[in-house]
Design a protein around this nucleic acid. Sequence first.
DNA 1: TTCAACCACTT
DNA 2: ACCCTTGGTTGAA
Length: 745
Amino acid sequence: MTETITGWLFDLYPNETNLTVWLIGEEGRRQRFFQDFAAVLYAAGPSTLLRQLWKWLMGQPIPVHLSRQERRDVFHGTIPVLSVEVLQPGKVDQIFREMVCAFPELSWYDADISIPLRYMARFDVFPLARVRLELRDETILRISPLDTPWELDPVPAPLRMLSLEPDCDPAHGETKELVISYERVRYSLPLEKAAALLVSLRADLRHYDPDVILTCWGDAWLLPRLAQASTESGVALPLNRDESQPVLERKEHTYFSYGQIVYRGRQTQLRGRWHLDQHNATLWGDYGMQGVLEMARVTRQPVQEAARLSPGTGISSMQFITALQRGILIPWHKHQAETPKSAMDLLRSDMGGLVYQPTVGLHREVGGVDFVSMYPGIMVRFNISPEVPRAKNDLEPTEGEPGIVPLTLAPLLNRRLALKSALLSMGKYDCRRPVYQALASAEKWLLVTCFGYLGYKNARFGRIEAHEAVTAYGREALLRAKEAAEELDFEILHMYVDGLWVHKPGCKTPADFETLLREIAERTGLPISLDGIYRWVVFLPSRVNGDVPVPNRYFGVFQDGSIKVRGIEARRRDSAPFITETQLQLLEILAQAPDADHLKEVLPRAQAYARKQLQVLRNGRVPIEQLLVAQKLSKELTEYSAPSPAVRAVRQMQAAGRAVRPGQRVRFLFTLGKPGVCAWDVPGVHPNPHTIDLPRYRTLFERAVRTVLDPIEQSVKGGVEAECLYLFPQPCQGSKTFARMVGEQ
DNA sequence: TTCAACCACTT
DNA sequence: ACCCTTGGTTGAA
């Protein structure tokens, strides 16, 4: 007796003998099923060794199916392999470890691919895919997808969410209460009365049966704490929906991504239910739940994994899916202890992108023209992939079988283009807008990283020549764009890697740029778009040498009044919120001018605002959190040779028993006297507001204000009284002078 | 005053 | 162990 049901694929993991698969049924039931699933891996090498391996495997207790096959290796063509089919998916890692030990000389393929990823590739499904199951009792006989990860508006799964939120950041202060909320329920309980809390929470879990437990600081703090309380008090807390499985812990780790060191705290994963910690999810800040689900869909990683995925892992898993589905072998990589060159290092060292010197100052009626996902676009159009042979300096589209990289990228790129064009045509207040924006930004990361991986020596599908071909065409495309613009009498104000800023008197509607865009698209074969038309844009000079332009510090206002800011204080994550806020507010005021000619009318308001904010600062009325500076620790404390403010703050934290790992942020305040900083995340220590180093904050404040106002004032000079040019007394460097100025009030 | 060390941004 | 874009700031020599 078989039956068929449909629903959303929710969770998936190996159990003792086969796989557990959770489904959210069409009609809303959460159901657990089981499915037989064999994981296949391959060994290649001398036939005698393969024969020995065969014999060795026959003597193992773990059941396997063995066969000789021919498979395709990306770099070596078709090779003979021994196929090892492990019938108990949960045992793959164990048996593989033993095989490598016994036969270290053999080459291994498809060996370190997670079970969920193998499953997703085999059945072409993904987390929250709509699927049809053919069942016999609790056993899945067949699973087939009803949609693809590339739907723009997938039918949303009816997820039940329960949120757990302590009343304050446990890293910083003393948490007393836990706020529990779901649907229309919301209440809080003291954390101290553990038994009462556990009983209540258990009742909620049983009664509401959430799919998602959404927490703040749940990974490293709340859930471990609840688990411990549960053990101590004897009150069981069934966080897992699958009570036959233990709660899973993923260890903290630090990795490089795009020239940055990144820290991921430990993670607490559930089975049959998701736990998502908003403060420990890679993309949560910018994209929220939608971003995490999108990441899971396109990378096909389980949702809890997707939540803390690095873009590199994300793009790798997409390539693995492509390879698995096409029968291309995935080489096994030992994890070498060497420090990998980051993708960003490569981008820098081979001077990948073309960079131009902008014309410093304020410009009006400027078109921002961007290639959309330029590097991925190049890889797809020119079939750039490690296994596809290339003639040198060949800049023409190639014929033939698309390679792994373009095959992986094409749907992602098309999706991003589709999202972008949907965004262009939808109204400003369309409710899908924020979602689409979140999806587009989430994918941008994957696309950008894919290019980096092409030149990354540890990537399994990398090749430096392919990487160079991409940057070479990128430079060529930008130059062709420049030529096209100049032939159409546009003035080139600036070019940067994949975008250019152009001006032509009278060109201020999208229609005025249409010919240019079409011409560039035609000459380069790459998708191009109008990022927007600026009412005005300012390219900043170097601060060290005021005559020299810098390519990536600018700000401007588009015709719809929205603001674009790059490289300046407000974009730096080590700026205090008060500084960022002031700078962005200044820009908001300036954005009220309908065009550059009206800047002189709004400038006095901006100046008055700056003066007001300065007063707030001087009077000590800025909330202390607004003055917090956050910096990322780039290495172990012992590796530092200079006692930078961040290092001094970490020392304070260490003295209080708080460890900080590389990649973690250190929050601190600048204070008067030695050591000049006060670490924020030291429990029980509350900095005295009177010791705040106001002069220092004032310097930072004025710097940020001058970045924005100086160029505007210069451009409207003549029409404005001279006294307006200097908002503040001349900047003073010595702290004594500052102390006097702050004291004078 | 100079300079090495350090942080962050650009995509 | 090696190389390391840019701009900018900080604190010690």
